[in-house]
Design a protein around this nucleic acid. Structure first.
Lengths: 244, 244
DNA sequence: GAGTGGTCTAGACCACCAA
DNA sequence: TGGTGGTCTAGACCACTCA
């Protein structure tokens, strides 16, 4: 009868709890790798039942923001563990063998955000950014030429030295040095022909087909924080994907 | 105390219910597009609480096997709806425009499964298969050269005529004509140079970089049912992917 | 208004982990 | 043995759809 015609959108309780927990995460109340309070504790804090907190945490776990460990507790997800360090790297050897991965820094300079990249990172054109170029070597063969662009505001002090210290594990470094955890990423793939300079860096012939992977990574609250273009040699490697 | 040392693996009730529902799905008790019984009804049937059935269905919904519609019921997912017809097609125009998609059949012949493809489809080498080649045209430009291989057992009677009848919507045809719904797929992407024959079909120069997408699709119970190799022209298109 | 899925609660019990 | 997450239940109530 006297209901609102357009109820300003119903919002489940567990969703609101999820937001509250996310805010604490952003505020740094619990850092990557640490445990968050138990479900019962959170239930008391937010004055809801354990089941509701549970459902909120389920959502965070589904988004890889948090990791549950039965019998132990719920932990803030991290890129530091060896297993999840390369979470976004989908390139594997076609023969299935494991490989040694090394990085080789080419350059790390400051510059200004421009055009498409500025737009994708939601920055005004001209904003100061850090631009990194590097090679990734798989078992001593250079297979990926990475071009990474970061807003220099949040990544103050990031330079060649820091990158080397962290052995090229960028996502791990973002977390430990800057408290910024990437939650998800969007990629656009296409096949291109290697231009002269890329060919030289990768040790292949110009015109060689390369898999171009453009990636934008997002942190909590869906804020874009990293743009990356990887050019990959895929003669004996491939990019794996699971469709559901 | 007197617990089993290696409890033959604990299996939650809702998981068992999920299996039971899946079996009914495989048996064809409810066909794609139809509604399955309500949660309460299923709860009675399996002698469990509604919450448990609910969790089972949650799992099926997460795997896109089933679709929930609040206030109406739960439906067996289908590829027939216009929206989900191209669920596995990730190629979009770089300018974001919508495009008209048409298929153009090149050939459809019977042959024998061999080597890698036989292995990926879990078929013995020499098993009879159906081999389809076709072009996909985006707004009048040929962009994908598809090579599809299907076991001929489950797809009896599949030929050029059937494909044309269904206007090239393969997944939709598998469902409506054979009751086979693809649940998930695995893809391997790489960049290659177009060979002579592919270049001719696609109307490009030999050596032009192509995005090669090899896909194996699985039906209920993780049974591989289709192998597919798509060669894509990506000069003004790209493959989109979301990493979580 | 009846029926369906969606939310929320409260409480019991199970499986896992660590001390 | 105690604490944590995981399962299961039973029941109340809410939001959506459709006749």
């Amino acid at each position: 009868m006297n209901k609102q015609l357009n109820p300003p959108s119903f919002r489940p309780l567990y969703d609101q709890i999820k937001v509250l927990i996310t805010q604490s995460l952003i505020a740094g109340e619990w850092k990557p790798g640490e445990a968050i309070p138990s479900e019962i504790e959170l239930a008391h804090r937010y004055k809801v039942s354990q089941g509701t907190v549970r459902k909120a945490i389920d959502g965070l776990a589904a988004e890889n923001i948090v990791v549950r460990r039965q019998g132990k507790g719920t932990y803030v997800a991290t890129h530091n563990e060896e297993a999840s360090k390369l979470r976004f790297l989908r390139l594997t050897a076609s023969n299935g063998k494991k490989e040694l991965l090394q990085h080789q820094l080419i350059s790390c300079v400051r510059s200004k955000a421009q055009g498409e990249v500025a737009r994708m990172l939601a920055l005004k054109a001209g904003t100061s950014v850090i631009e990194v170029k590097r090679l990734l070597n798989f078992s001593d063969r250079s297979l990926i030429l990475d071009h990474i662009i970061l807003p220099s505001g949040p990544f103050k002090g990031l330079g060649a030295a820091r990158i080397e210290e962290n052995k090229g594990s960028m996502y791990s470094m973002y977390e430990t040095q800057y408290g910024i955890r990437m939650v998800r990423a969007e990629e656009r793939l296409k096949a291109i022909a290697a231009d002269k300079s890329s060919a030289k860096e990768l040790g292949i012939a110009p015109g060689f087909p390369l898999l171009s992977i453009e990636r934008v990574s997002y942190t909590y609250g869906d804020k874009p924080m990293e743009w990356r273009l990887g050019l990959c040699v895929t003669d004996d490697h491939h990019y794996v994907n699971e469709l559901e």
